[in-house]
Write a protein that binds this DNA or RNA. Structure first.
Lengths: 201, 201
DNA sequence: ACTTCCCCCGAACGATCGTTCGGACGGGTG
DNA sequence: CACCCGTCCGAACGATCGTTCGGGGGAAGT
C-alpha cells in the first residue's frame, strides 16, 4: 500500500471517529486536524473538501458491508438462514465498525449533488438485497418493504445505545436481534399463552 | 391561551420543521427567522438561545408522548395488549408529529448541561415504561432491555423512510410493526414451514 | 399627556467556519 | 549542481455563525 493511501486511511479513520462523536456539522476542520495529527491545510492534500471526507467514509463503509453481506449470504442454503446470515453479518459488522456505521446511519442526508447520488445508489443496492431475502422467505407475511425498514431500524439503532465492550458481545447481540426479528418476541417461544391471553382479553 | 404562548408555539413549530428538514447544526438562526416569520432578533424575545429552542421542542414532545403512552396503556387489560397499545400509540403519535419526533430521535445528543440532563431524565422515564411493559409479559423471552432498544429502533427509524400521506396509513403501519415485533416475522404465521426448512437445511 | 411595559427589529459584535494562498522542506532525477 | 515534485503548513481570506445592543412603536394605566 502506498504511503499516500495509508495516510488517507488514517485521516478517514480519525474523521469517522470524530464525526461519530460530535456529528458532521458540529465538527470543524480544525477539530479533524487536531484529531488526526494533520495540519489544517495539510488535510486538503488528501481530500478536496469536508464533504468529501464524509463521502469517502460512507462510500468505503458501504462497499465493505455490501460485499461482506453478499459473502455471508452466499454460503447459506435456504432463504431463512440467508436472512439470518444477513442479520448476523450486519450487526457484527456494525459492532466492529461503530464509528463508520454510525456516520453512515446518522449523517445520511448531509451529502449533496453527485456524492449524495452515489451513496444513495449504494444504499438502494443494500436495501434491495435485504428486501429480496425477505421476499424469498416462503409463506404469507408482512410487507417486505416495511419489514426491511423495520429490521434496519432495529439493527441500525444500536449506535444509540450499544457498547461492544459491554456485557453483551456482538455475536450474542446479533443472535438476539436475529431471533427477535425472525421468531418474534412472544409468539415463537410462547405461542399458546399468547393466544390464551388474547382470546381471554 | 396568552398571545405570548401562541407566538412561542408557532416559533417552536417552525423551528421543529426546519430542524427536521436540515438538522440542528445545519440550521442557522437566520433560517429559523425566515421559516417562522420572526425577525432574527425578535426570536430572542421568546427564547434565550438556539439550544433552548431544541430543548423546548424535545421536552414538550416528550411530555406529550409520555402522558399519551400512559393513557393508552392504562385502559389495556393484560400485559400483551398493554404492550400493543404502547406500540400503537408510539407509532401513530410519531406519524402525526413527524417533525418533533424526528428532532427528538435524531438530535438526541446536541443538548448540553442542564437541558441535556432534563431530557435524559424524561427519556429514561419513557424507556423505563416500555421496559416494564416488556418485563411484565409472562414467559421466558429475550432480554427486555435489548428488546426495548430493538423495538424503539424499529419504531423510531420510520423518520428515515415513512411518509404518513403515502400508501400505508399510520394506523396500518402501527399494526404492522406491532405484529412484526409481537408475533415475529416468520414463526407466528408459519412456525411449521420454518422448522421444516431449518431441519431440511 | 405622560409613564410603563411588552413586543419587536436593523445593525452590528466577536468568533469561528471551510477553504486558499504562497512558499518551505526533502529526496529523487538530469 | 540545478530542477522538479510530492508533502506539508502558517497565515490569511471572505462568509457566516449565534448573540447583543440600543432604541422604536403602540396599547394600557394613571
Amino acid at each position: 500500500m502506498q504511503p499516500f493511501d495509508k495516510r488517507l486511511d488514517s485521516l478517514l479513520a480519525a474523521a469517522a471517529k470524530t464525526f461519530a462523536e460530535r456529528g458532521y456539522h458540529a465538527t470543524s476542520m480544525r477539530d479533524l486536524a487536531r484529531a488526526s495529527g494533520f495540519s489544517l491545510a495539510g488535510m486538503y492534500h488528501y481530500v478536496e473538501s469536508k464533504q468529501e471526507l464524509l463521502f469517502q467514509i460512507q462510500d468505503r463503509c458501504f462497499v465493505l458491508v455490501l460485499e461482506g453481506a453478499r459473502a455471508a449470504v452466499a454460503t447459506a442454503p435456504d432463504p431463512e438462514s440467508r436472512l439470518r446470515a444477513f442479520i448476523r453479518h450486519h450487526v457484527t459488522f456494525f459492532a466492529s465498525h461503530m464509528a463508520e456505521m454510525k456516520v453512515l446511519a446518522h449523517e445520511e442526508d448531509e451529502l449533496t449533488g453527485t456524492m449524495r447520488a452515489h451513496v444513495r445508489r449504494r444504499k438502494k443496492e443494500y436495501v434491495g438485497l435485504l428486501t429480496e431475502l425477505l421476499t424469498d422467505v416462503p409463506g404469507e407475511h408482512a410487507d417486505p418493504h416495511i419489514a426491511a425498514y423495520a429490521l434496519f431500524g432495529m439493527m441500525n439503532w444500536i449506535y444509540t445505545w450499544y457498547h461492544p465492550a459491554g456485557p453483551t458481545p456482538p455475536a450474542a447481540l446479533a443472535d438476539e436481534l436475529a431471533s427477535l426479528f425472525l421468531d418474534g418476541y412472544i409468539a415463537a417461544h410462547h405461542a399458546t399463552p399468547r393466544l390464551v391471553a388474547t382470546l381471554g382479553g
